[in-house]
């Protein structure tokens, strides 16, 4: 059995993505890059990123902003003529970038982390807390604008101030802890 050290960067991306083997079939046709609604803001198109993965440009790939601009709309995935699970590969790249401490523009990560913090704590997301905590830490200057929007949301009864929790939080936390332990050991799918 190979260990993660034996695997190339390309192999690890494939191994961490369900159905990732299809990446080897990339024709470099650009259907993904053309289909991406956020493609204009990406420093590399998904296609370009796949060529870089092939070329083992691990550092550049994990520093790319491309996965962070992915909106998970699956347009690329359904149009890919080689049926590559592109959206899932973007998830894998985000995860690898976080683990490598490589991502230079942390807004998206922090947003995800804040969001998931609530979920792990209570089992439910918490809109008001998310906005406050995320923006307070990361975009304090936006708070005025957001405060107005928050007030508008409140007025329309769309922003409860008290977070909800599930009943069996313990069960959820045990499951997540176990999943994290397995993930930490997992080098190979």
């Amino acid at each position: 059995m190979k260990t993660s050290q034996d695997l190339t960067f390309h192999d690890r991306v494939v191994a961490l993505t369900p159905g990732g083997e299809a990446l080897e079939q990339c024709l470099q046709c650009g259907s993904c890059g053309g289909s991406c609604p956020a493609g204009a803001d990406m420093d590399h198109t998904p296609r370009g990123l796949f060529a870089m993965i092939r070329a083992e440009m691990e550092d550049e790939v994990l520093r790319s902003n491309t996965p962070w601009y992915c909106v998970s709309c699956y347009a690329c995935t359904t149009r890919c003529p080689q049926q590559i699970p592109i959206t899932d590969i973007m998830y894998t790249l985000k995860q690898m970038a976080i683990q490598a401490g490589h991502y230079d523009h942390p807004h998206a990560t922090k947003f995800s982390e804040t969001f998931i913090g609530f979920v792990e704590q209570r089992g439910r997301s918490f809109e008001a807390g998310l906005a406050t905590r995320y923006h307070l830490y990361h975009h304090p200057t936006d708070m005025v604008r957001l405060g107005m929007m928050g007030l508008n949301m409140l007025r329309r009864n769309r922003l409860p101030l008290r977070p909800k929790s599930i009943r069996e939080v313990d069960q959820l936390q045990a499951i997540l802890a176990e999943a994290k332990a397995i993930a930490a050991k997992e080098t190979y799918r």
């Binding site: 998830y91 985000k94 995860q95 998206a108 995800s112 998931i116 997540l176 999943a179 397995i182 993930a183």
Partner: peptide
């Protein structure tokens, strides 16, 4: 879409 970005298995 947030959790899949951070840690796939959890």
């Amino acid at each position: 879409t947030e959790y899949f970005s951070l840690n796939r298995l959890p």
